[in-house]
Design a protein around this nucleic acid. Structure first.
Length: 1172
DNA sequence: CTTCTGAACATTTTT
DNA sequence: TGTTCAGAAG
């Protein structure tokens, strides 16, 4: 528990107002000021005021944040269930500012159970999860496959690879336009440029699709794009280049004068290049080449003009006094025309890129759709489209509206414009009129901090937080409801020293630019006002001129690399703290390894170096939160082993295996094996030949042969697990590569297992996936494990720690390589609206327009870089240490380290001291002037908790592992009645009939099934039309008679009043059920899908559709397997609806005929199965 | 002052 | 693999 500080009235008032469910609120909060706390408070107050939990929707971006938020809410509520009356009343009074009456108290105690139990419950979700559930509810309206699945990144990559392969084969297969575009892109961008372009097309597919629709569908080859940039229709590159000639100021006659004058004075003193190139330009007839010549003649290599005052000698100027003027006129014409030409070229390239993009995206979408996949982008865009649809939209809105009255958004600064669109649509009706929902109070709440917007590469736009605030404030006020615009400035997290340092760093307007919309300087206030802390700035270490040995055979000493030295300093500091039982004064307790957080901008060698340095000192450190599996040397060795076992002639792999910890053969031995052998002899042959002379080599050969045998016959996991454990490879690897190799090997094995289940079989396929998809292992950092954590600032968002090291890698905030290849720009509205893209193929198409856009992108990236600094600095509770390193070049300005040290090293509150470990000069910035807590007292009061004995039961052996059988599916359950028989497909399948093709019967069954599932969701009047439309698509190759027969039987079923209850709006289609049941003494899991489920207060009805032809007329003719199937469903449902009768029926769609199954018949069937 | 040459350097990541 | 930057040379 943290020490409780009195909360300033200002903060208490803001928090109270923010969490007051009577008004909508927008909260702009500083780091550590209790955002999530306010949000959780608001949820609880809503519940306390009697809001139905299912009407509250909390949205966040990450699953971790969602989990965190729901933990907060539920822990408070569960606490309440156990409190005494007086305490609970006090809590509620503090929260809601009123004495609770009896009723409220009772409700408060029940909230925990209610919030958990309400169907649909309290919705605390990621925005993606929410959209997914909406789409699952309205697949037909959203025009998506009913049972879509989410596309994981690996699948996505493989779909795109397929689309790409199709494209490349498509270019050779006669699509002339595509082939030409492909050639253009390849020529301009090279292979690398093509790859970069394709992957960017993937990422920006939604925007690109819109852009292509706007400018490319006129059939005129993207003419609108050229018009947008004021090019005339039919204008060519030559036309543009030709417009520079005759050259202003250097009309041909003047050029002659100039040449003779220049020669008369002294040719060499004139511009180096002007004369020869200009002479060529004069005779050149090709306008483009002429423009190039003129450029070379009149401009410097970087495209800037010469300074005419310096470039022309005085003697020449005396003869031609208007020369500078004329020169500048010529330069102006040349640069302008070149710029237009470059822009034109860029558009040409863009057209080719768009042609490819169009093709690729269409193909990708088709592949995706064919497999009923949706990707994460689709979730958002499809939901927006669904809600925006003029026909279905309002209806969906209405159905959702019944469920949502309050929307709460966490981390709103990370919400992208698309996601805002979802929220706006959802809230559209909130403030539209008081009519429909009477007095119901409906609110929108968002909390965020634009200073912490660091996910622009995921589409988050820092501006949209403020923009949305304006929009909602307007809407709320129009509805005459109350809207609170609040700021939370007090920090519960950090000491004054840390906060003052943050304010000081961002006091410089240049540093503050783009951090926030607020023009005022940052102002952080500490609630922990008596806690001393400090901020230190260590000097940035550079690469010293370490003389590398001339003899290249000597090993290079990497210990001198700056990153490694900084890592050593950090590790040494931590070691000293732990050894000397350092006290965190602000907390009055001893520092532990888990109090330390090391933040970096990117995962580079420093992270590894630090991890290593800490392990060398026996300091517990959390493993890397992310690691690339095939990138690790241990995995590389295992891959090499696999390659060799598949292909024994693979000399390189064998050599790697021999030198690796697997065999640990010396360099000399390997040389003897490799160098002496005849030309056509492989390494393995040579090894076998030498095995006769050496027992060690013979052992290697034996072992390799054994493995080869195993690899050929065993599954991949079994093989590698055996090699690692039984053959003690794991021990060898850890001995040589260090303990972190153990983690990697564990991950490697679990990857083997996963691949074995889902991937292609065989070692070869396994190695291919491992190397190509290069899976990254993500691990959650466990904060409770008392380990030093090392992570990126991005990953640390939302975390905090008493001591934070902020390590600056010294690389420039931004480099042009980070610029997107497809540059976004805004359409003027003349030719198209919205966002467009230009393809930056190479430097030679750079032009004024693109340079402006690049400069803007650079500025935005730079702003975000400094926001990242803000996030990093504000993670610190008590102490912040800023250190860094840089390469051989002098440290560039504008990096984290230089920004912070500029602000703090000269400050009057800073003192200089020597770093105890490294001896480097260190600047310590301290604001608080408080006596340090006495060490003795601290030690006494905060002794480590007494170690309690572990419960006895922990030492008892676990019961033997019960292997769970494959889930039993009710529709195949009858096979179980005859023990030992596997469920086989009934050859006399009821859906198959003799008249028609088997394929048709199945298709027909599926189509009917789908119609019965979807149509009840439509208004009665629309059903016929929708069904007809569906059948014309799904049944395109049926006969007309078949189609109308199917339509008629579906409409008859839906129209029959006997079935009305089943298809009423309260019923549900395709309800998945799962549970377990004892079958012949064994517990079996059962899972299945109920076609239609209707629940009324009295009873639960379930129906399964069957398409038998001819349909059975009586119960006696119904196949017993069907009765058993429904009996199982019934058995699963019964305990869920105590006191209600569960009735079951079969609907034979052919007739149509509903046959009720008597309870006794089902009980009998179940009894036969369970053997009871 | 410009051009040439070789060396150094080349994100962040969730759903 | 390509671009930028610093230092040497013209």
């Amino acid at each position: 528990m943290k020490k409780a500080y009195p909360i300033p009235t200002e903060t208490a008032a803001s928090q109270a107002r923010a969490s007051d469910p009577k008004n909508s609120a927008w909260v702009s909060a500083n780091a550590g000021s209790g955002k999530t706390h306010v949000l959780a408070q608001r949820v609880i107050r809503l519940l306390l005021n009697g809001t139905d939990p299912s009407k509250i929707l909390c949205l966040t971006y990450t699953r971790a944040a969602a989990a965190n938020m729901s933990n907060r809410v539920f822990s408070t509520l569960s606490e309440w269930t156990a409190l005494g009356d007086a305490e609970l009343a006090a809590k509620i009074t503090a929260l809601d500012d009123r004495r609770p009456d009896r009723d409220t108290m009772r409700r408060a105690r029940r909230l925990f159970a209610e919030a958990l139990e309400t169907p649909g419950g309290l919705k605390i979700q990621t925005i993606h999860a929410f959209c997914e559930s909406v789409l699952h509810q309205f697949p037909l309206e959203a025009n998506i496959p009913a049972h879509f699945e989410m596309l994981d990144p690996q699948m996505e990559a493989s779909l795109f690879a397929a689309a790409r392969r199709d494209m490349i084969s498509g270019t050779s297969a006669g699509d002339a336009g595509l082939a030409e575009a492909f050639a253009t892109v390849l020529e301009r961008g090279g292979e690398h440029g093509l790859d970069a372009l394709l992957s960017e097309i993937v990422r920006k597919r939604d925007g690109l699709r819109g852009f292509i629709d706007a400018v490319g569908r006129d059939g005129a080859g993207f003419q609108a794009l050229f018009e947008e940039f004021h090019f005339r229709p039919g204008q060519s590159a030559e036309d543009i280049a030709a417009s520079v000639w005759p050259l202003p100021g250097f009309l041909p006659d003047f050029f002659a004068v100039f040449a003779s004058a220049a020669e008369a004075v002294d040719a060499r003193t004139v511009l180096n290049n002007l004369l020869p190139y200009a002479r060529q330009a004069f005779v050149e007839t090709d306008p483009i080449r002429r423009l190039q010549m003129l450029g070379k003649a009149f401009l410097k290599a970087d495209g800037d003009p010469y300074d005419p005052a310096k470039a022309f000698k005085k003697a020449l100027l005396d003869r031609l006094p208007d020369l500078p003027e004329r020169y500048l006129a010529a330069v102006k014409a040349i640069t302008e025309v070149s710029d237009r030409l470059a822009l034109f070229r860029m558009l040409e390239g863009t057209v080719a890129a768009l042609t490819i993009a169009d093709w690729l995206i269409v193909r990708y979408e088709r592949l995706k759709r064919g497999r009923s996949f949706l990707d994460f982008n689709d979730l958002i865009t499809r939901t927006v489209n669904l809600l925006a649809r003029p026909d279905a939209g309002p209806w969906v809105q209405y159905k959702l509206d019944q469920g949502i009255d309050h929307i709460l958004l966490d981390e709103a600064q990370d919400t992208s414009p698309d996601q805002w669109e979802v929220v706006k649509r959802l809230a559209e009706e909130f403030f539209a009129g008081h009519g429909q929902r009477g007095t119901a109070n409906r609110t929108v709440f968002a909390v965020g901090d634009e200073k912490q917007s660091i996910y622009s590469f995921q589409g988050a736009a820092p501006d949209s937080f403020a923009d949305s605030r304006l929009l909602f404030a307007g809407r709320v006020r129009d509805a005459e409801a109350s809207f609170a615009d609040l700021k939370l400035t007090w920090s519960f997290r950090s000491t004054d020293d840390v906060l003052a340092a943050v304010d000081r760093v961002f006091a410089d307007p240049g540093v503050r630019r783009g951090i926030s919309h607020d023009p005022d300087p940052l102002d952080h206030k500490a609630i922990r006002n008596d806690a001393p802390g400090y901020v230190e700035v260590w000097p940035s270490l550079g690469a010293d001129a370490v003389e590398e040995p001339d003899d290249w055979t000597l090993p290079v000493n990497h210990a001198s690399a700056p990153a490694v030295r900084v890592a050593e300093h950090v590790a040494a500091t931590i070691q000293a703290w732990l050894k000397d039982r350092e006290i965190i004064e602000g907390k009055g307790r001893r520092l532990r390894a888990g109090d330390i957080l090391v933040l970096v901008r990117k995962r580079d060698r420093f992270v590894h170096a630090l991890s290593r340095a800490l392990k060398d000192r026996d300091i517990p450190v959390a493993g890397a939160d992310r690691l690339s599996l095939p990138g690790h040397i241990a995995v590389k060795d295992l891959i090499a082993l696999g390659h060799f076992l598949i292909q024994p002639q693979d000399d390189l792999s064998l050599a790697a295996v021999l030198r690796s910890p697997i065999f640990d053969v010396s360099e000399e031995t390997l040389f003897a094996l490799g160098a002496g052998r005849p030309a056509a002899t492989s390494l393995i042959t040579s090894l076998r030949q030498h095995a006769g002379d050496s027992a060690a080599l013979a052992a290697i050969v034996t072992r390799l042969d054994g493995w080869a045998n195993e690899a050929a016959f065993r599954p991949v996991f079994e093989f590698y697990a055996g090699v690692l454990a039984r053959d003690s490879l794991r021990k060898k690897m850890i001995a040589r590569l260090g303990p972190e190799a153990g983690d990697i090997l564990d991950e490697f094995l679990s990857f083997c297992l996963a691949e074995e289940r889902t991937g292609l079989p065989g070692l070869e396929a396994f190695l291919a996936t491992l190397e190509n998809t290069g899976p990254e292992i993500k691990r959650e950092m466990d904060q409770t494990r008392d380990e030093v954590r090392v992570m990126t600032v991005h990953a640390a968002k939302g975390l905090e720690a008493p001591v934070v090291f902020l390590v600056d890698g010294g690389s420039a905030p931004f480099s042009d390589q980070h610029l997107p290849r497809l540059m976004p720009f805004d359409g003027s509205g003349r030719n198209f609206d919205g966002k467009g893209y230009l393809w930056r193929s190479a430097a030679d198409v750079a032009n004024g327009f693109s340079k402006t856009a690049s400069a803007r992108a650079r500025e935005l990236a730079d702003d975000e870089y400094r926001r990242l600094l803000y996030v990093g600095m504000t993670r610190a509770e008590d102490r912040l240490i800023v250190c860094g390193y840089h390469g051989k070049r002098s440290p560039s300005t504008g990096t984290w380290h230089s920004i912070v040290s500029r602000a703090l090293t000269g400050a009057p509150e800073s003192t200089e001291r020597r770093h105890p470990a490294s001896g480097e000069p260190v600047h310590r910035f301290v604001m608080t002037k408080l006596p340090p807590v006495e060490q003795a007292a601290a030690d006494e009061t905060r002794l480590p908790q007494q170690v309690l004995p572990l419960p006895e039961s922990l030492y008892r052996a676990l019961p033997p592992y019960e292997e769970l059988p494959r889930p039993l599916s009710p529709s195949g359950a009858s096979a179980l009645i005859d023990e030992g028989k596997e469920a086989v497909v009934d050859t006399r399948s009821p859906v198959l009939d003799s008249e028609a093709e088997p394929g048709f019967a199945v298709m027909r069954g599926l189509a009917l099934h789908k119609l019965l599932q979807m149509l009840p969701g439509f208004a009665e009047g629309e059903r016929q039309g929708a069904a007809g439309q569906y059948l014309s698509r799904a049944g395109a190759d049926w006969t007309e008679a078949e189609r109308s027969k199917a339509l008629a039987s579906v409409m008859a079923i839906l129209g029959d009043s006997r079935f009305a209850e089943l298809f009423s709006p309260n019923s549900r289609a395709e309800v998945a059920v799962m549970g377990s049941l004892e079958v012949k003494g064994r517990l079996r899991s059962i899972s299945g899908k109920i076609d239609r489920l209707a629940v009324t207060p009295e009873r639960v009805s379930i129906v399964d559709y069957k398409t038998n032809r001819p349909a059975p007329a009586t119960l006696a003719q119904v196949p017993p397997a069907y009765i058993l199937q429904l009996a199982l469903y019934r058995a699963l449902l019964k305990p869920l609806y105590p006191g209600r009768e569960v009735t079951a029926a079969l609907l034979f769609t052919e007739a149509p005929r509903l046959i009720e199954l008597p309870a006794e018949a089902m009980d009998d069937a179940l009894a036969r199965l369970t053997g009871a």
